[in-house]
Design a protein around this nucleic acid. Structure first.
Lengths: 154, 154
DNA sequence: TTACGTGCAAATAATTTGCAGTCCC
DNA sequence: GGGACTGCAAATTATTTGCACGTAA
């Protein structure tokens, strides 16, 4: 499997040139985002390795290691721009930090307490059977399920 | 219905004297917490009006209005002590703030985007049909469902 | 009395913002 | 060239902590 061809990373691409770097730039431009050095660098880190759950701080550290010159403020800005453009999804779990998920398809999450790790639950593996009535003037944006896990006592 | 006799507020009380103030003190002591002026004051605000979803800041404001002399730091400490003692439940939703729920029974939540409001979904109204396999060395702590709502466009 | 609590202010932690300078198209 | 983007540092927001003082048992 090509590094940029995971389902969620490739789903809406308009072009597939075979050059992954070029494809990323096209993808950004299609999202209305100028493919600047830092956006391409961060996009590469985010989308080139399959589905990931990252915090801003985490991505910033990866960028440093990968010699992508970027400031923490720009990492925050970029993550929000990517989210707005539909390339990422913000995930709400316990804890102060915000996680960003490269898998934007319908799915849910495991959250490992203590380790603060997020794992995908694929769409079919969980199912919400019945939904309660909601007020007339409201509509459902999304249903989020978080299964909290803990490492068993030994 | 007596103000201190909502299901979740009265569930585990050992004594019911008829004096709600006294009952609260007993409840705190049973939880291993000395019934100090601020704990009783905050407990009163939390448990005397049915199920509530409050942030630390929100409770602090209520306390000010109710002339309960307490500092914001103590509100935070008290909320965490109550949570540890099982009198409250922390709820993880989007946004930076932490919510505390006086309903500690099994149930889920609506979250109204924009208004940042939390509403209970009673246990029977929603149902998770199938759960995915989890690693051998893990156990499920809790399954949390958040149904995000948005006010309809007019 | 005396350990447990509390208030205050300072410390953290995560995130956002303002603005001068830089870079893509 | 010009507007979009970025870096930096300072500002915000939510929360925690350290320590002198107060209070319930």
């Amino acid at each position: 499997m090509s590094v940029l061809s995971t389902p969620s990373a490739s789903l809406n691409w308009r072009e597939q040139s075979g050059c992954l770097y070029h494809d990323l730039r096209v993808r950004l431009r299609n999202a209305g985002l100028r493919p600047t050095r830092q956006r391409v660098g961060l996009g590469w880190l985010l989308f080139a390795r399959g589905d990931r759950h990252l915090t801003a701080e985490g991505l910033y550290e990866e960028a440093s290691k990968a010699r992508v010159p970027v400031s923490l403020a720009t990492v925050y800005n970029t993550l929000h721009q990517f989210t707005e453009a539909g390339l990422l999804r913000e995930v709400a779990v316990d804890g102060a930090k915000t996680y960003f998920d490269t898998n934007t398809t319908q799915h849910h999450h495991f959250f490992v307490e203590g380790e603060n790790r997020l794992l995908d639950i694929e769409g079919q593996e969980i199912e919400v059977a019945t939904l309660p009535a909601i007020p007339d003037d409201m509509e459902i944006v999304r249903v989020e399920v978080v299964v909290r896990l803990r490492r068993k006592e030994v």
